[in-house]
Design a binder for these strands. Sequence first.
DNA 1: GGCGGAGGCGCC
DNA 2: AGGGCGCCTCCGCC
Length: 584
Amino acid sequence: MSREASPAADTEDVLLSFLDNDGAVVEAKRRFTTASFLAFVRTQEATRRDQQAPRWVWDDTASFYPNLLAADVRVQRCYDLRLSHTILRNSSLTRKSALAVAEPGVWDASPAAARVIRETGTALFDLQVELAPAPDPAAEFACQLAAVASSSEPRRIRLLLAAESAGALVAAEMRFAGLPWNTAAHEDLLARELGPRVPYGVRPDRLEQLAGTIRTLLGEATLNPDSQQDLLKALQNAGLQYGGLPLLSTQQWHLTEIDHPVIAPLLQYRKLSRLLSANGWSWLDAWIVEGRFHAEYLPGGVVTGRWAARGGGALQLPKQVRGAVVADPGWTFVVADAAQLEPRILAALSSDLAMARAGHGTDLYEGIVASGVVETRAHAKVAMLGAMYGATTGESGRLLPRLARAYPRALGLTEDAARAGERGDIVTTRLGRSSPRPSQAWMDAQAQAYAQSASNADERRARSQARDWGRFTRNFVVQGSAAEWALCWMAEIRKQLWLLEDETLAGFGRSPAAGRGRGLFGDAPHLVFFLHDEVIVHTPIALAGEVAAVVTGAAAAVGKLLFGTFPVDFPLTVATVQNYADAK
DNA sequence: GGCGGAGGCGCC
DNA sequence: AGGGCGCCTCCGCC
């Protein structure tokens, strides 16, 4: 639980400053102890709520903000130096800045390494970092402001840094609040599927039965179905084939194609075994505290700008267990997801009016069908995904030419991004996050293929690696720009919920700064879950309508923010439900 | 024993 | 021969 997740920093001075409404640094290079800082923030945030809030500038939201939350302090806005540094270091929009051309330093180290350096003054393994000067947030901040100012697109990069920083606040707050989780409902589900609870390491009844069935059907009395090697051998011995050849893998995808009595119980075994190991009783014990799942989100954890998560698999929550996500009594969930977000982002990025029009007022894939490009929604979807992921074969590959004829600008953008990657160039998202450069090994392999001594194998390998990297950059632009849309969406939702909270509290005759009855978020709606293109807000039932309006309004606002007057829609599917499983 | 790769599979 | 992740288990290796 987040209250004890981060070590208290009582002895550590924290250096902070904040920006006023015009972006000027009001207070810089002031050192606080944690206690005095808490008091200072309380005053600032309470007295300035009705104005534009200060933007706190600090080195690392993830290591610092949880302490504030634990002390019942929320801040409205911040600037995260660590996350911003990573963006500015790599962005093509700031490539000529002093920050981008400097040697790697402490701001390029991982958060854990940076913490070690901060606390001990030395790094354990990295000589280059060890020789770097101690981190100076004020100097770093000045360096970052200069990088932004030197950018060819300062508005975009500034927006990206603000969104990334707001995301860091949201991530810490969501972890702190936790996703409401009904342990009893989860246990019921496990008992229904697996049988009565068993100690760790023991196979539940239902799995034991299925294992017996599989052993009988394969004539292998001692087979362990958890061992891929044993299983594959047994399947081969039983004569199972795939495409006329002996089975080489036990993947679901291959097994489903095979007609044999063992397949059904085997797939069922796999499914339940997965449930047990990923979201079984041990998972409940480890991750659910007082009816909440406190997932740790990692903003900027994926190179494309998507979030990653650590612990409990928050971003892989199977549909199977979503029935355990239940709102508190008197509360409900507003669940919203952006419909066909990535293709809509692609349409806007490439200014493809025809594709944008196909998504106007309707399901984008249906719109593609209605335009006569392909026959079915399923075809439209697989073709679009193929365009964004770089499929070349199968149904997707066959449909691509038709898509390319109908939407030359959109498909041209994905092709250009792929070619750039194949050359070893970087690509950049809407707001300015750039892809990493390929590794030295990759560059060497490409150079090797042009050498006189190059063998056919060298050339094949180089071509294959070039195509792999091209698929990465092709996807990077779309996935990364979609991640920016989602970050801005969440930031806007958070801002509007904050305003809604102030109004509501004022309506009850309480001052916004007054203490709240139910912990940090009081009776206020707050974000509790995020999944790439989907959010959940936990809200008192009476406010659900207003929350739905906030979420919808935010999506519209963000479309304008990122793409101006380009006529692209970002429709949402919004559901107000007591139980996450009932959404969609 | 711990570590890490591979296989597999959950989410988008 | 389809992009991005995290996590679990098995299994070979040190």
